[in-house]
Design a protein around this nucleic acid. Structure first.
Length: 848
RNA sequence: GGGCGCGUAGCUCAGCGGAAGAGCACUCGGCUUACACCCGAGCGGUCGCAGGUUCGAACCCUGCCGCGCCCACCA
């Protein structure tokens, strides 16, 4: 480029930049990953695949921007940035959305219909009966809907300016990912790290599926304490207290602490439950707390996890009374043998837990075994995080991945990671230390990756779970509900001596925990894998440390004997102005596309970049306005610098002010680089921004007359022109990761290539202190002149008769170096110096 | 109950051992050959509280108060 006046528009604007540049970036492939053949030249990012179940919100925009800033920085540093995007379309949210959207329901017993005509979306809820679909048809419909969602997501991400390589996009429900997920699972089965077991499991009666420890949350739930009498053989009453009287027929023991003096005489004896008349032992166990309730608890199968512990450790019988639908089972459990007890139970059969509770309380009241009235309490109860009814515990057969036996190794893996911010590691450590069961990965749902397993049926038609049939790896992915296992034909499905497919699907996390393996080409592209794994960065929310982060570390540990990445960057929440977490349910979400349209992508990115790693950040349109101003200013400042003729060949930066400013900028580059290397993008933006405003407000004003050649002669003019272009080039590159559109636009006015493919500015080591001081002196001087004009309510263009500079000799000497710039910029007649022993000050004399 | 983080200007936040900072808001002024979607000047703070360490503390230590989050318990 050697044109004097580059291609600068008359009135630069942010409007329309997104569409213009997003299209050109796609065309030119500037963000395309090309494998360099060398792991050290790659920066690979394990981007979170957003759940495709509706819409992205500002929280997504916030955290994905952080990652993009880092990606762009690394790219400019010369790294081959491996930055794919995925969509998590697996799981409950999609299932639920499809059911509501199309008015359908999955019936796994139906056969697959290859010519199915799918229903149109419902115009309004309940306008027609639900349409039943086979599992495979249901899954196809899910895929249809998620495709549409994914396009909308991609459009938003492109507009935001994420420098993702869109040619590598993956979907967690795709055949490729299903294959990989099943393959990884079968490998775990083979080496004993995945197993199935029949055990009491936390169960959501609404969704009718088992849930894992990581998916629990506590909610305040109203209940009541009931004081209930059991009967000892001698006729005396033993009172227990419970919030779940409906579990009385499931009671298998009373438990008190071994040291509790009140119950010493009862240990080993048998008491009889009221109403149901079931004899149960009174047993000691250290998990019983003396100062809680009556100090003696009724152990039921199962009211809570302590019941499970007692049941297991004291080898108690199981008296299950709650079914998977949350209702009381029709058949009374073994042990409930008395006629009266059976009659009482019959009155509960089929009732919901809530109704059963009322009936049991009524019966207790009638028999006189309810002591006093129930006392209402609100106490925390375990819920499935997506559910709306308290969890029950039912016994069921489930698949688990071993994690308890790897606790120490997982803590070591956590220590291998660099955490940003560092204190987030504590959450991981807490979680790993607090694990109380292996990872339950099976879900009794439909839309997800099926377990690639069948079971032979014995002559009675009962599955032989101990001898699962697995497919060959080459046949993956398989859906055992429609595929036939090796050695069988389809006619044997469900028949004695035949087979049955595992009906369950894997939990979403069981697949998304494999994202590093999915994107890096595990078991499919060894060359790519060698260049990208272990990955450099996992960015994610701090709320899913116990799920996604933990599970990914576990799977990588089991599969690759390695950490999945070197750095984990945890982003915070977006808080609404009331300091609450922004969420859809609170109805306070602002749609991201609207924000991008209103403020521009650069502005929204600027706001996002103001949130430090791990820190919850307020949603702040004010910050977006500031960002918009910055981006506009970059365009205008660029226009101005480029409107000044290019420096002549052989020009040199000779003027003290010019040298000092470049020195200062060099220091800014050093600071910004160090900050970005440590994922402290906010600090990088701050130092760049502080310099930029000083550059615009003070340096540009001071240097204008010289650059226009009004003063200073040839050398001064060329020095100014060279310093201006040099600064602008550096500044545009410094801001490119943050405001990619404005910087690209301005860059395009005087360069042919993309700024995002340029190299990151390098620092010569930072300026010395005297440069910073000289710039500070220049700022102080020009401010003093401005203040005088401002106090006199005059225009900045108004002439100044005289400026007297008073202060220490050394400072006067330094100001002397830049006095001519100050004089010209301030429209000052003469500048005089008077050495004193006092602090530096300026006397500004305006004309009469 | 355990852990983590945070309390600095009206608001959003930097600063984390050497003279209290920025932006926004507010007040006053200015069409200045890049930008009026702009520019300039100004107002504004017992750095949560109380002790301690230090020549020196917003910063380090101890205790307390308040807010948020994570985990556990849930008879």
């Amino acid at each position: 480029m050697s044109e004097f006046t580059p291609n600068v528009p008359e009135r630069p604007s942010l409007d329309g930049l997104e569409l213009k540049w997003a299209a050109r970036w796609e065309e030119s492939g500037v963000y395309r990953f090309d494998a360099p053949g060398d792991r050290s030249a790659v920066f690979s990012i394990d981007t979170p695949p957003p759940t495709v179940s509706g819409s992205l919100h500002v929280g997504h925009v916030f955290s994905y921007t952080h990652t993009d800033v880092v990606a762009r920085f690394q790219r400019m540093r010369g790294k081959h940035v491996f930055y794919p995007m995925g969509w998590d379309d697996n799981g409950l949210p999609t299932e639920r959305r499809v059911q509501n959207h199309f008015g359908v329901r999955c019936d796994p017993s139906l056969p697959y219909d290859p010519d199915c005509t799918y229903p149109e979306p419902l115009a309004k809820k309940g306008e027609r009966p639900l349409v039943n679909l086979s599992r495979r048809n249901f899954v196809e419909l899910c895929e249809k809907l998620t495709e549409v969602d994914e396009l909308a997501f991609e459009e938003l991400w492109r507009r935001l300016g994420l420098s993702v390589d869109w040619s590598m996009t993956y979907m967690t429900i795709s055949r490729r990912v299903q294959r990989l997920s099943q393959l990884a699972f079968l490998r775990l089965v083979r080496n004993g790290e995945a197993y199935q077991a029949e055990a009491p499991t936390l169960w959501d009666v609404g969704f009718q599926t088992a849930v894992a420890q990581a998916e629990l949350e506590d909610r305040e739930h109203p209940g009541a304490w009931h004081r209930i009498a059991f009967h000892a053989p001698g006729g005396e009453k033993v009172f227990i207290e419970t919030t779940r009287p409906e579990l009385l027929p499931a009671c298998v023991a009373l438990i008190a602490h071994p040291d509790d003096e009140r119950y010493q005489g009862l240990f080993g004896s048998t008491v009889t439950s009221p109403v149901f008349g079931v004899p149960v032992p009174v047993l000691p166990h250290p998990a019983a707390e003396q100062d809680r309730g009556a100090g003696i608890a009724m152990c039921c199968t199962f009211g809570d996890m302590t019941d499970v512990q007692w049941w297991r450790e004291l080898k108690l019988p199981a008296r299950t009374i709650i079914g998977r639908d949350g209702r009381i089972l029709p058949e009374a459990p073994a042990g409930l043998d008395g006629a009266e007890g059976r009659e009482a139970y019959a009155s509960l059969a089929g009732a919901t837990v809530h109704t059963a509770r009322e009936r049991v309380v009524a019966m207790l009241r009638e028999s006189g075994d309810l002591d006093g009235e129930p006392r209402k309490v609100v106490r925390p109860v375990k819920f499935y995080e997506k559910g709306d009814k308290p969890l029950e515990i039912v016994s069921s057969r489930q698949w688990f991945i071993r994690s308890l036996s790897h606790q120490d190794a997982l803590l070591d893996r956590g220590a291998e990671l660099e955490w940003h911010p560092a204190y987030m590691k504590a959450r991981y450590d807490d979680w790993v230390r607090g694990l109380n069961s292996d990872w339950l990965v099976s879900r009794q749902r439909f839309f997800g990756v099926p377990f690639p397993v069948w079971y032979p049926l014995d002559e009675d038609g009962e599955p032989v779970y101990a001898e699962p049939i697995v497919p060959g790896e080459e046949s993956l992915p398989v859906d055992p509900s429609s595929a036939t296992p090796p050695g069988y034909d389809e006619g044997q499905r469900g028949r004695p001596g035949g087979f049955v497919g595992d009906p369950d699907v894997m939990d979403t996390w069981a697949t998304s925990s494999l994202t590093p393996l999915i994107v890096c080409g595990w078991e499919s592209d060894p060359e790519l894998f060698a260049q990208t794994f272990p990955m450099d960065l996992r960015p994610q929310g701090h709320d899913i440390i116990r799920t996604w982060l933990f599970a990914t570390v576990l799977r990588s540990h089991l599969s690759e004997d390695a950490v999945p990445w070197r750095h984990a960057a945890l982003s915070g929440w977006i808080l609404d102005p009331d300091r609450k977490k922004m969420s859809k349910s609170k109805g306070n979400v602002v749609t991201p596309m609207h924000l991008l349209e209103q403020f521009s992508a650069d502005a929204v990115r600027y706001w996002a970049a103001s949130g430090r790693p791990g820190t919850d950040t307020a949603f702040d349109e004010g910050q977006m306005k500031v960002g918009r101003r910055l981006a506009t200013k970059l365009l205008n400042a660029s226009k101005f610098v480029l409107s000044i003729p290019e420096p002549a060949a052989g020009a040199e930066v000779t003027e003290p002010l010019d040298r000092a400013v470049l020195d200062l900028l060099d220091d800014v580059v050093a600071q910004a680089t160090a900050a970005l290397e440590a994922f402290e993008y906010t600090t990088a933006l701050e130092v760049a921004e502080r310099f930029f405003w000083l550059f615009c407000d003070d340096y540009l004003e001071l240097v204008k007359p010289r650059a226009y050649a009004d003063i200073g002669g040839d050398a001064g003019r060329e020095s100014a022109r060279l310093a201006l272009r040099t600064s602008l080039s550096t500044l545009l590159r410094l801001f490119a990761p943050f405001v990619p559109y404005a910087t690209e636009e301005a860059w395009s006015w005087w360069h042919t290539g993309s700024v995002h493919a340029e190299s990151w500015p390098t620092s010569a080591g930072g300026g010395d202190a005297s440069s910073a001081e000289l710039v500070a002196l220049a700022t102080t001087a020009i401010s003093a002149v401005r203040k005088a004009k401002s106090d006199a309510k005059q225009s900045m263009r108004a002439p100044v008769e005289k400026v007297r500079v008073l202060g220490p000799r050394e400072q006067l000497d330094r100001i002397g170096l830049i006095a001519e710039d100050i004089r010209a910029a301030g429209h000052v007649g003469v500048v005089e110096f008077d050495a004193t022993t006092e602090a530096l000050r300026f006397e500004v004399t305006l004309p009469e």
